[in-house]
Design a protein around this nucleic acid. Structure first.
Lengths: 220, 220
DNA sequence: TCTCGTTACGCAGGACGTAACTATT
DNA sequence: AATAGTTACGTCCTGCGTAACGAGA
C-alpha cells in the first residue's frame, strides 16, 4: 500500500475552512450538500492522522484551538494554490491562454509587434502589448502585471529569471541564437510552459528554454 | 456526495513527481512500495479528472507532455507547501517551536532580553535574539530571516503586517496597551498562531492579536 | 427542549493487487 | 525477446449516508 505520510487529504482540507467560515459543521454541511457526520468524520480524520485537536468541542458554537488556527491559515494557502492549477492545465491542453500581456523593448517593438500579434493570434484570446524599457518591464513581470517580456539582451542582469528564460530566434531551428535578431523573453507560471510547448510547434520561431540543451521532447 | 471540483488528490499528486524523477512508472512503483498498475491508475485518474494528457505513451522512456510539465512544476510547489504543515501542527500542539529568531529594537533590548529569554525558555528549543533597528528587522522578517520582531511603536508604517500583528503588554490582562512599556511584535506562519496561543497561557504577558477585540477564545 | 456533534452501522464506490494483454525498443 | 504500461477483474477498505445517541445552551 501507499506510504502516504501526508496528514490530510485535499477533500478533507477543503471542508475544514468551510466549517470555520460557516460557524460550525452543520451549516457547512447544508451549504456543501453533504451530511453532518461526513464533516465530523472528515475533521476527525485530519485530527487523528496529524495527531492534533482542531476544535474545542466543549463549547458552543465550536471554537478553534490554536492548532486549528494554524491549519485554517495553511489550508487557505494550499487551497488557493491548488484551485488555479486546473485552469492552468486546461490552458496548456488547449494551447491557448485567455490573456497574454507582453512587454517589448522600444527598439524591437517596431519590428516585432506585428509579427508577434500574428503569432499569438491563435494562442491567446487577448493580446496586450506594452512598449517601453526592459527594466520597467522586468519590474512589471515580477509584480505579475506582465506575463512575458521581450528584450534585446538575454536579461542576465535581471535576477530571478534564470529558470524562466526563453530565447527565440526567428525562422529556423538552430539552437544557438543568431547574432542578429536575437531576443530574449521571460515568462512565468503556466505561460512559461506554454512557450515551452510552442517550441515543438511548427512556426516561424523556435523557442528553446534555458539551460540550453533541452530539446523538443521533454525527457523525464 | 461531495462536490470535489479539485482535479486531483494529494496522494495522486505526490506520486506524479515520483514518476517524473524515477524515469517511469515501474521504477517509481518499486521505490514507493506500490504496484505499477496502481501508479498507472493514479496518473490516469488525474488525467481523466482534469481532462488532460500528462504523458506521451507512444515513446519509451515515457515523455512528459507540455501539460505534464506544468503539473510537474505545480505539484512540486503544492507538495512543498503541504509537507511542512504537519510539523507546524505538531509544534502548535506541543506548544514548542524548534527555533525562534527574534529581533528587538535597541531601546528595548536592555529591558526585555532577559525577560523574553525566561519567557521563551519553555516555549522554544532555541532562542536567537538580534538587536538593532526595527526597519532592518522588518526587512529580515519579510525575508524569513527573523520569526518575530519587537519594536516600540505598533509598526503601522510597515506594510503587510496588519494581520500578523501582536501587541504584548507586561503583567496584566488589560486589552488596551499601557502608555508605558507598550511594545508590538510581528510574526508570521505558525509562530503567529504560537503567540496567539500564548495569549491564553498564564504568564507575565498578555498578548492580543489585532484587530483588537479578539479574545482568548478563538471564535469561528 | 432544541440544536448540534458524535457514534454505530450498512452500503456503494474506489483503490490497490494479481494476472493477462499490448506495445515499444 | 524483454521490459514497461494498460486493461480486466476480484477483494478490501474507506468514505458517506441513515439512524440512534449524547451533550451544550
Amino acid at each position: 500500500m501507499m506510504a502516504n505520510d501526508l496528514p490530510f487529504d485535499l477533500s478533507a482540507l477543503s471542508i475544514f475552512p468551510a466549517v470555520c467560515e460557516n460557524g460550525g459543521m452543520a451549516p457547512a454541511a447544508r451549504k456543501h450538500d453533504i451530511t453532518q457526520p461526513a464533516i465530523s468524520q472528515g475533521i476527525g480524520d485530519i485530527e487523528s492522522r496529524s495527531d492534533t485537536l482542531l476544535f474545542d468541542r466543549s463549547v458552543r458554537p465550536l471554537a478553534l484551538t490554536a492548532t486549528g488556527a494554524v491549519l485554517r491559515e495553511q489550508a487557505g494557502i494550499v487551497i488557493a494554490a491548488v484551485r488555479p492549477i486546473a485552469s492552468q492545465l486546461q490552458e496548456m491542453q488547449s494551447g491557448r491562454v485567455r490573456q497574454l500581456r507582453v512587454g517589448i523593448v522600444d527598439s524591437l517593438s517596431r519590428a516585432l509587434t506585428a509579427e508577434l500579434s500574428a503569432f499569438m493570434k491563435t494562442r491567446a484570446e487577448r493580446l496586450v502589448v506594452h512598449t517601453g524599457l526592459t527594466d520597467s518591464h522586468a519590474a512589471a513581470l515580477f509584480t505579475r502585471q506582465l506575463d512575458l517580456i521581450i528584450g534585446e539582451d538575454d536579461l542576465e542582469d535581471v535576477a530571478g529569471l534564470e529558470r524562466s528564460q526563453l530565447t527565440a530566434v526567428p525562422g529556423g531551428h538552430s539552437r544557438t541564437p543568431h547574432a542578429r535578431g536575437v531576443r530574449a523573453g521571460a515568462a512565468h507560471g503556466s505561460l512559461r510552459a506554454f512557450f515551452r510547448a510552442l517550441a515543438s510547434l511548427p512556426s516561424g520561431y523556435s523557442c528553446t528554454t534555458r539551460p540550453a540543451g533541452t530539446d523538443a521532447r521533454n525527457r523525464l
